[in-house]
Amino acid sequence: MSEPSFTLLLRLLTPSLDSAVVSVAPTHVLAAALFRLAHGAPYKSLARRFGFDSSADACRAFFTVCHSINLKLGHLFELRSDSDRVRTDFGWLSLPNCCGVLGFGRFKVSGEILGQNGSLLAQALVDSEGRFLDVSAGWPSNLKPETILHQTKLYLGVEEARDLLSGPCYELSDGRSIRQYVLGDSCFPLLPWLLTPYAKPKEGDGDGGLISEEMAFNAAHRRAIGLVGMAFGRVRRRWRLLAKEWKEECVELLPFVVVTCCLLHNFVMKCSEPNVEAYLVPLREGEEEEEEKFPVFDGDMSESGEKVRDALAAHLNRVCLRR
Rank of each mutant, 00 (worst) to 15 (best):
R36T: 06
C187T: 10
M215R: 15
C98V: 09
S141K: 13
L210D: 02
A25C: 13
L183F: 10
W139R: 07
R323E: 07
N97Y: 12
P295N: 03
R162S: 03
E306P: 03
R309E: 06
P26T: 09
R80S: 11
A56P: 05
V182A: 02
C99Y: 15
T152Q: 02
D89P: 00
G299C: 13
W92I: 15
V126W: 04
N117L: 12
V281T: 10
S186D: 07
A61D: 06
L93C: 10
L8G: 03
R223K: 14
R87N: 01
P96Q: 12
K108H: 15
A278N: 09
I225T: 08
A219S: 06
T88M: 03
A122H: 03
W239L: 01
K108D: 11
P189C: 02
E160L: 13
S141H: 09
L12H: 07
K200F: 00
L190S: 04
A243K: 03
R60Y: 01
S19P: 04
G138E: 02
M269C: 09
P197G: 00
F267A: 06
S173Y: 01
L71Y: 08
L121G: 01
Y155M: 13
I148R: 12
L34P: 10
I225V: 11
A224E: 10
P15L: 10
G286P: 11
G115C: 07
C320K: 13
L125P: 01
R131K: 15
V126N: 08
S119C: 07
L149S: 08
L34W: 06
D174R: 05
V235S: 04
E129K: 14
S94D: 15
N266G: 02
V257Y: 11
F107Q: 06
M230D: 11
T260R: 08
A311F: 09
Q180Y: 10
F63H: 15
L34K: 01
P201Y: 00
V228T: 08
E249N: 13
G184I: 07
L283Y: 12
I178Y: 12
L165R: 06
T27Y: 14
R80K: 12
S212N: 07
R236N: 05
A56R: 03
T27Q: 14
E249V: 04
L149I: 06
N218W: 05
V65S: 06
L321R: 15
V24F: 04
E252H: 13
P15I: 07
D205L: 09
A33R: 05
A122S: 15
L120F: 05
S272P: 01
F104T: 08
K44D: 13
L102R: 11
A47V: 01
G229V: 09
K270D: 10
Y198G: 05
G118D: 05
R284M: 14
L241I: 13
I113L: 09
A231G: 05
M301I: 06
G229W: 09
E159D: 11
Y198V: 04
E285T: 11
M215C: 11
T14K: 15
F297E: 02
Y155H: 15
G130M: 11
L76S: 05
V21Q: 02
D310G: 01
V24W: 00
N317Y: 15
Q123Y: 02
K108G: 10
F52V: 00
L264C: 15
D89I: 02
N266W: 10
G229A: 10
D163G: 00
S83F: 10
D207C: 09
A122Y: 02
L165I: 08
R322S: 13
R238I: 02
S94P: 03
V22C: 13
K293Q: 15
L194Y: 01
E291Y: 09
E287D: 14
T88Y: 12
